[in-house]
Amino acid sequence: MLAYLIRRLFQAAITIVVMAVLVFVGIYAIGNPIDVLISPEADPAEIEAAIRRLGLDQPLWRQFLLFVSNALRGDLGTSFVHNEPALRLIIERMPATLELAVAAMLLSIFLGIPLGMIAGLRHDRATGRGIMAASILGFSLPNFWQGMMLIMLFAVWAGWLPSGGRGDTVPLFGVPVSFLTLDGLQHLILPAINLALFKTALVVRLARAGTREVMLQDYVKFARAKGVSERRVVLVHMLKNILIPVVTVLGLEFGSVIAFAVVTETVFAWPGMGKLLIDSILNLDRPVVVAYLMLIVFVFILINLVVDIVYSLLDPRVRLSGRAE
Protein backbone atom coordinates (compact mmCIF):
# COMPACT_ATOMS: atom_id res chain seq x y z
CA MET A 1 0.00 0.00 0.00
CA LEU A 2 2.77 2.44 0.93
CA ALA A 3 4.78 1.47 -2.13
CA TYR A 4 1.65 1.97 -4.17
CA LEU A 5 1.14 5.47 -2.79
CA ILE A 6 4.74 6.44 -3.44
CA ARG A 7 4.50 5.22 -7.02
CA ARG A 8 1.27 7.12 -7.47
CA LEU A 9 2.80 10.32 -6.09
CA PHE A 10 5.65 10.00 -8.54
CA GLN A 11 3.22 9.53 -11.42
CA ALA A 12 1.22 12.49 -10.20
CA ALA A 13 4.31 14.70 -10.18
CA ILE A 14 5.08 13.79 -13.80
CA THR A 15 1.48 14.44 -14.81
CA ILE A 16 1.57 17.87 -13.20
CA VAL A 17 4.83 18.83 -14.92
CA VAL A 18 3.57 17.72 -18.34
CA MET A 19 0.30 19.53 -17.76
CA ALA A 20 2.12 22.70 -16.69
CA VAL A 21 4.07 22.78 -19.95
CA LEU A 22 1.00 22.12 -22.09
CA VAL A 23 -1.13 24.68 -20.30
CA PHE A 24 1.53 27.33 -20.35
CA VAL A 25 2.36 26.94 -24.02
CA GLY A 26 -1.29 26.66 -24.97
CA ILE A 27 -2.31 29.78 -23.11
CA TYR A 28 0.66 31.70 -24.46
CA ALA A 29 -0.51 30.91 -27.96
CA ILE A 30 -4.07 32.18 -27.70
CA GLY A 31 -3.48 35.91 -27.84
CA ASN A 32 -1.88 38.95 -26.39
CA PRO A 33 -3.41 40.09 -23.11
CA ILE A 34 -2.08 43.61 -23.65
CA ASP A 35 -4.69 44.16 -26.36
CA VAL A 36 -7.43 43.50 -23.85
CA LEU A 37 -5.94 45.02 -20.75
CA ILE A 38 -4.64 48.32 -21.98
CA SER A 39 -6.65 50.78 -23.91
CA PRO A 40 -5.43 51.13 -27.50
CA GLU A 41 -5.17 54.88 -26.99
CA ALA A 42 -2.45 54.52 -24.35
CA ASP A 43 0.91 55.86 -25.40
CA PRO A 44 3.75 53.46 -26.25
CA ALA A 45 5.61 54.17 -23.05
CA GLU A 46 2.61 53.14 -20.95
CA ILE A 47 2.21 49.98 -22.98
CA GLU A 48 5.90 49.27 -22.62
CA ALA A 49 5.67 49.71 -18.86
CA ALA A 50 2.65 47.42 -18.61
CA ILE A 51 4.37 44.71 -20.64
CA ARG A 52 7.39 44.92 -18.38
CA ARG A 53 5.24 44.93 -15.24
CA LEU A 54 3.39 41.79 -16.34
CA GLY A 55 6.63 40.09 -17.32
CA LEU A 56 5.51 39.69 -20.90
CA ASP A 57 8.77 41.05 -22.35
CA GLN A 58 10.62 37.92 -21.29
CA PRO A 59 11.02 34.97 -23.67
CA LEU A 60 8.55 32.11 -23.16
CA TRP A 61 11.00 29.77 -21.43
CA ARG A 62 11.99 32.48 -18.96
CA GLN A 63 8.32 33.11 -18.20
CA PHE A 64 7.79 29.41 -17.75
CA LEU A 65 10.74 28.97 -15.40
CA LEU A 66 9.56 31.94 -13.38
CA PHE A 67 6.08 30.44 -13.29
CA VAL A 68 7.41 27.06 -12.12
CA SER A 69 9.65 28.50 -9.44
CA ASN A 70 6.78 30.66 -8.18
CA ALA A 71 4.37 27.76 -8.36
CA LEU A 72 6.66 25.65 -6.20
CA ARG A 73 6.33 28.36 -3.59
CA GLY A 74 2.55 28.24 -3.85
CA ASP A 75 2.28 31.35 -5.99
CA LEU A 76 0.44 30.73 -9.24
CA GLY A 77 0.66 34.34 -10.38
CA THR A 78 -1.44 37.43 -9.98
CA SER A 79 -4.54 38.08 -11.98
CA PHE A 80 -4.03 40.75 -14.62
CA VAL A 81 -7.62 41.86 -14.23
CA HIS A 82 -8.33 41.65 -10.52
CA ASN A 83 -4.79 42.31 -9.39
CA GLU A 84 -5.20 39.58 -6.79
CA PRO A 85 -3.35 36.27 -6.44
CA ALA A 86 -4.93 33.92 -9.00
CA LEU A 87 -5.05 31.00 -6.62
CA ARG A 88 -6.90 33.01 -4.02
CA LEU A 89 -9.45 34.16 -6.58
CA ILE A 90 -10.14 30.55 -7.50
CA ILE A 91 -10.14 29.20 -3.96
CA GLU A 92 -12.63 31.87 -2.96
CA ARG A 93 -15.08 30.57 -5.52
CA MET A 94 -14.31 26.91 -4.98
CA PRO A 95 -16.76 26.19 -2.14
CA ALA A 96 -19.70 27.29 -4.29
CA THR A 97 -18.66 24.96 -7.12
CA LEU A 98 -17.82 22.09 -4.79
CA GLU A 99 -21.16 22.42 -3.06
CA LEU A 100 -22.95 22.33 -6.38
CA ALA A 101 -20.86 19.41 -7.61
CA VAL A 102 -21.36 17.36 -4.45
CA ALA A 103 -25.10 18.02 -4.48
CA ALA A 104 -25.29 16.96 -8.14
CA MET A 105 -23.23 13.82 -7.52
CA LEU A 106 -25.33 12.79 -4.54
CA LEU A 107 -28.47 13.29 -6.58
CA SER A 108 -27.15 11.19 -9.44
CA ILE A 109 -25.95 8.41 -7.11
CA PHE A 110 -29.11 8.17 -5.04
CA LEU A 111 -31.39 8.51 -8.04
CA GLY A 112 -29.29 6.76 -10.65
CA ILE A 113 -28.30 3.54 -8.90
CA PRO A 114 -31.80 2.56 -7.69
CA LEU A 115 -33.40 3.56 -10.97
CA GLY A 116 -30.75 1.68 -12.91
CA MET A 117 -31.17 -1.44 -10.80
CA ILE A 118 -34.95 -1.32 -11.21
CA ALA A 119 -34.49 -0.88 -14.95
CA GLY A 120 -32.17 -3.90 -14.98
CA LEU A 121 -34.36 -6.13 -12.84
CA ARG A 122 -37.48 -5.22 -14.82
CA HIS A 123 -35.84 -4.78 -18.17
CA ASP A 124 -38.70 -6.42 -20.03
CA ARG A 125 -41.48 -4.48 -18.35
CA ALA A 126 -42.89 -1.02 -18.81
CA THR A 127 -41.10 0.34 -15.70
CA GLY A 128 -37.69 -0.65 -17.03
CA ARG A 129 -38.37 0.61 -20.52
CA GLY A 130 -39.75 3.89 -19.15
CA ILE A 131 -36.63 4.50 -17.07
CA MET A 132 -34.42 3.83 -20.07
CA ALA A 133 -36.42 6.17 -22.29
CA ALA A 134 -36.15 8.91 -19.67
CA SER A 135 -32.41 8.35 -19.40
CA ILE A 136 -32.04 8.94 -23.13
CA LEU A 137 -33.66 12.33 -22.61
CA GLY A 138 -31.24 13.03 -19.77
CA PHE A 139 -28.39 12.17 -22.08
CA SER A 140 -29.38 14.06 -25.15
CA LEU A 141 -31.08 17.28 -24.06
CA PRO A 142 -28.50 20.06 -24.08
CA ASN A 143 -27.50 21.12 -20.60
CA PHE A 144 -28.15 24.83 -21.07
CA TRP A 145 -31.59 24.15 -22.52
CA GLN A 146 -32.48 21.89 -19.60
CA GLY A 147 -31.36 24.67 -17.28
CA MET A 148 -33.50 27.27 -18.99
CA MET A 149 -36.50 24.94 -19.00
CA LEU A 150 -36.03 24.31 -15.28
CA ILE A 151 -35.95 28.06 -14.66
CA MET A 152 -39.01 28.58 -16.82
CA LEU A 153 -41.02 25.79 -15.15
CA PHE A 154 -40.08 26.18 -11.51
CA ALA A 155 -38.99 29.79 -11.22
CA VAL A 156 -41.04 31.68 -13.79
CA TRP A 157 -44.31 29.76 -14.10
CA ALA A 158 -44.66 27.99 -10.81
CA GLY A 159 -42.63 30.52 -8.86
CA TRP A 160 -41.56 27.88 -6.34
CA LEU A 161 -37.83 28.33 -6.59
CA PRO A 162 -35.45 31.21 -7.28
CA SER A 163 -33.95 31.39 -10.75
CA GLY A 164 -30.36 32.14 -9.87
CA GLY A 165 -27.72 33.16 -7.38
CA ARG A 166 -26.60 31.36 -4.28
CA GLY A 167 -28.99 32.65 -1.62
CA ASP A 168 -28.11 32.94 2.05
CA THR A 169 -24.98 31.23 3.18
CA VAL A 170 -23.73 30.30 6.62
CA PRO A 171 -20.14 29.46 7.45
CA LEU A 172 -19.34 25.81 8.08
CA PHE A 173 -15.75 25.40 9.33
CA GLY A 174 -15.13 28.91 8.01
CA VAL A 175 -16.41 28.08 4.53
CA PRO A 176 -19.67 29.66 3.39
CA VAL A 177 -22.25 27.03 2.38
CA SER A 178 -25.79 27.33 1.09
CA PHE A 179 -27.31 24.00 1.96
CA LEU A 180 -27.72 24.76 5.66
CA THR A 181 -30.15 27.62 5.12
CA LEU A 182 -33.61 27.22 3.66
CA ASP A 183 -33.04 30.04 1.21
CA GLY A 184 -29.67 28.63 0.16
CA LEU A 185 -31.14 25.17 -0.26
CA GLN A 186 -33.88 26.56 -2.49
CA HIS A 187 -31.22 28.23 -4.61
CA LEU A 188 -29.22 25.03 -4.77
CA ILE A 189 -31.99 22.70 -5.98
CA LEU A 190 -32.38 23.81 -9.60
CA PRO A 191 -28.70 24.09 -10.56
CA ALA A 192 -27.97 20.80 -8.79
CA ILE A 193 -30.72 19.05 -10.74
CA ASN A 194 -29.50 20.63 -13.95
CA LEU A 195 -25.96 19.45 -13.34
CA ALA A 196 -27.12 16.02 -12.13
CA LEU A 197 -29.39 15.10 -15.04
CA PHE A 198 -26.66 13.96 -17.39
CA LYS A 199 -24.77 12.11 -14.65
CA THR A 200 -27.95 10.43 -13.46
CA ALA A 201 -28.68 9.19 -16.95
CA LEU A 202 -25.14 7.85 -17.13
CA VAL A 203 -25.39 6.10 -13.76
CA VAL A 204 -28.78 4.64 -14.69
CA ARG A 205 -27.32 3.06 -17.80
CA LEU A 206 -24.24 1.76 -15.99
CA ALA A 207 -26.28 0.34 -13.12
CA ARG A 208 -28.73 -1.26 -15.51
CA ALA A 209 -26.00 -2.90 -17.57
CA GLY A 210 -24.32 -4.09 -14.37
CA THR A 211 -27.57 -5.45 -12.96
CA ARG A 212 -28.41 -7.36 -16.11
CA GLU A 213 -24.98 -8.91 -16.11
CA VAL A 214 -24.87 -9.73 -12.42
CA MET A 215 -28.43 -11.08 -12.17
CA LEU A 216 -27.49 -13.99 -14.43
CA GLN A 217 -24.44 -14.96 -12.41
CA ASP A 218 -24.40 -18.27 -10.59
CA TYR A 219 -23.63 -16.61 -7.29
CA VAL A 220 -26.93 -14.74 -7.41
CA LYS A 221 -28.77 -17.98 -8.08
CA PHE A 222 -26.78 -19.70 -5.36
CA ALA A 223 -27.69 -16.94 -2.90
CA ARG A 224 -31.35 -17.53 -3.77
CA ALA A 225 -30.85 -21.28 -3.41
CA LYS A 226 -29.60 -20.64 0.13
CA GLY A 227 -32.99 -19.15 0.93
CA VAL A 228 -31.62 -15.63 1.39
CA SER A 229 -34.32 -12.98 1.04
CA GLU A 230 -34.72 -11.30 -2.32
CA ARG A 231 -34.04 -7.96 -0.66
CA ARG A 232 -30.65 -9.14 0.53
CA VAL A 233 -29.86 -10.75 -2.81
CA VAL A 234 -30.40 -7.42 -4.56
CA LEU A 235 -29.02 -5.02 -1.95
CA VAL A 236 -25.96 -7.02 -0.94
CA HIS A 237 -25.05 -9.60 -3.56
CA MET A 238 -25.95 -7.59 -6.62
CA LEU A 239 -25.38 -4.00 -5.48
CA LYS A 240 -21.82 -4.54 -4.32
CA ASN A 241 -20.85 -6.02 -7.66
CA ILE A 242 -22.56 -3.26 -9.60
CA LEU A 243 -20.81 -0.53 -7.62
CA ILE A 244 -17.40 -1.43 -9.02
CA PRO A 245 -17.89 0.05 -12.52
CA VAL A 246 -20.16 2.78 -11.20
CA VAL A 247 -17.53 4.07 -8.77
CA THR A 248 -14.90 4.20 -11.49
CA VAL A 249 -17.00 6.28 -13.81
CA LEU A 250 -18.45 8.48 -11.08
CA GLY A 251 -14.99 9.35 -9.84
CA LEU A 252 -13.98 10.66 -13.24
CA GLU A 253 -17.32 12.38 -13.64
CA PHE A 254 -16.92 14.11 -10.29
CA GLY A 255 -13.73 15.69 -11.57
CA SER A 256 -15.42 16.90 -14.70
CA VAL A 257 -18.39 18.21 -12.73
CA ILE A 258 -16.06 20.32 -10.61
CA ALA A 259 -14.02 21.48 -13.56
CA PHE A 260 -16.69 22.09 -16.13
CA ALA A 261 -19.84 23.12 -14.31
CA VAL A 262 -19.45 26.24 -16.43
CA VAL A 263 -22.73 26.01 -18.32
CA THR A 264 -24.86 25.42 -15.24
CA GLU A 265 -23.07 28.12 -13.28
CA THR A 266 -23.62 30.56 -16.13
CA VAL A 267 -27.30 29.74 -16.62
CA PHE A 268 -28.07 29.95 -12.90
CA ALA A 269 -25.66 32.81 -12.16
CA TRP A 270 -23.97 30.54 -9.61
CA PRO A 271 -20.87 32.32 -8.33
CA GLY A 272 -18.47 29.40 -8.81
CA MET A 273 -15.13 28.69 -10.41
CA GLY A 274 -16.59 27.93 -13.83
CA LYS A 275 -17.89 31.42 -14.23
CA LEU A 276 -14.52 32.81 -13.18
CA LEU A 277 -12.82 30.63 -15.81
CA ILE A 278 -15.07 31.88 -18.60
CA ASP A 279 -14.52 35.50 -17.59
CA SER A 280 -10.79 34.97 -17.36
CA ILE A 281 -10.58 33.36 -20.79
CA LEU A 282 -12.54 36.25 -22.27
CA ASN A 283 -10.18 38.75 -20.62
CA LEU A 284 -7.06 36.69 -21.49
CA ASP A 285 -6.29 36.71 -17.80
CA ARG A 286 -3.50 34.16 -18.22
CA PRO A 287 -2.47 33.57 -14.61
CA VAL A 288 -6.03 32.76 -13.56
CA VAL A 289 -6.57 30.33 -16.45
CA VAL A 290 -3.25 28.62 -15.82
CA ALA A 291 -3.86 28.43 -12.08
CA TYR A 292 -7.34 27.09 -12.68
CA LEU A 293 -6.17 24.35 -15.00
CA MET A 294 -3.33 23.38 -12.66
CA LEU A 295 -5.77 23.15 -9.79
CA ILE A 296 -8.10 20.99 -11.86
CA VAL A 297 -5.25 18.63 -12.75
CA PHE A 298 -4.54 18.33 -9.08
CA VAL A 299 -8.19 17.64 -8.32
CA PHE A 300 -8.35 14.93 -10.98
CA ILE A 301 -5.23 13.23 -9.66
CA LEU A 302 -6.65 13.31 -6.16
CA ILE A 303 -9.99 11.89 -7.26
CA ASN A 304 -8.33 9.09 -9.22
CA LEU A 305 -6.36 8.12 -6.17
CA VAL A 306 -9.52 8.05 -4.07
CA VAL A 307 -11.27 5.96 -6.74
CA ASP A 308 -8.46 3.43 -6.73
CA ILE A 309 -8.63 3.11 -2.98
CA VAL A 310 -12.42 2.78 -2.94
CA TYR A 311 -12.12 0.24 -5.74
CA SER A 312 -9.80 -1.92 -3.67
CA LEU A 313 -12.25 -1.73 -0.80
CA LEU A 314 -15.12 -2.85 -3.01
CA ASP A 315 -13.36 -5.58 -4.90
CA PRO A 316 -11.16 -7.83 -2.79
CA ARG A 317 -9.49 -9.18 -5.92
CA VAL A 318 -7.92 -5.77 -6.50
CA ARG A 319 -4.89 -5.25 -4.35
CA LEU A 320 -2.94 -2.04 -4.58
CA SER A 321 0.63 -3.05 -5.22
CA GLY A 322 3.76 -0.98 -5.62
CA ARG A 323 4.85 -2.84 -8.71
CA ALA A 324 3.86 -1.74 -12.15
CA GLU A 325 2.20 -4.46 -14.19
Binding site: Y219, F222, K226, K240, N241, I244, D315, P316, R317
Partner: peptide, 19 residues
Protein backbone atom coordinates in the same frame (compact mmCIF):
# COMPACT_ATOMS: atom_id res chain seq x y z
CA UNK B 1 -34.57 -23.41 -0.10
CA UNK B 2 -31.36 -23.99 1.75
CA UNK B 3 -33.12 -25.29 4.83
CA UNK B 4 -34.87 -28.39 3.48
CA UNK B 5 -33.77 -28.56 -0.13
CA UNK B 6 -30.22 -27.40 -0.77
CA UNK B 7 -28.31 -27.13 -3.98
CA UNK B 8 -24.70 -27.43 -5.02
CA UNK B 9 -23.74 -25.88 -8.35
CA UNK B 10 -21.47 -26.94 -11.12
CA UNK B 11 -18.75 -24.32 -11.12
CA UNK B 12 -17.33 -23.47 -7.69
CA UNK B 13 -15.55 -20.49 -9.25
CA UNK B 14 -18.90 -18.92 -9.97
CA UNK B 15 -21.12 -19.93 -7.05
CA UNK B 16 -19.56 -17.79 -4.37
CA UNK B 17 -19.94 -14.04 -4.64
CA UNK B 18 -16.45 -12.70 -5.41
CA UNK B 19 -16.85 -9.49 -3.41
Amino acid sequence: RGAHVAMIFQDPMMTLNPV
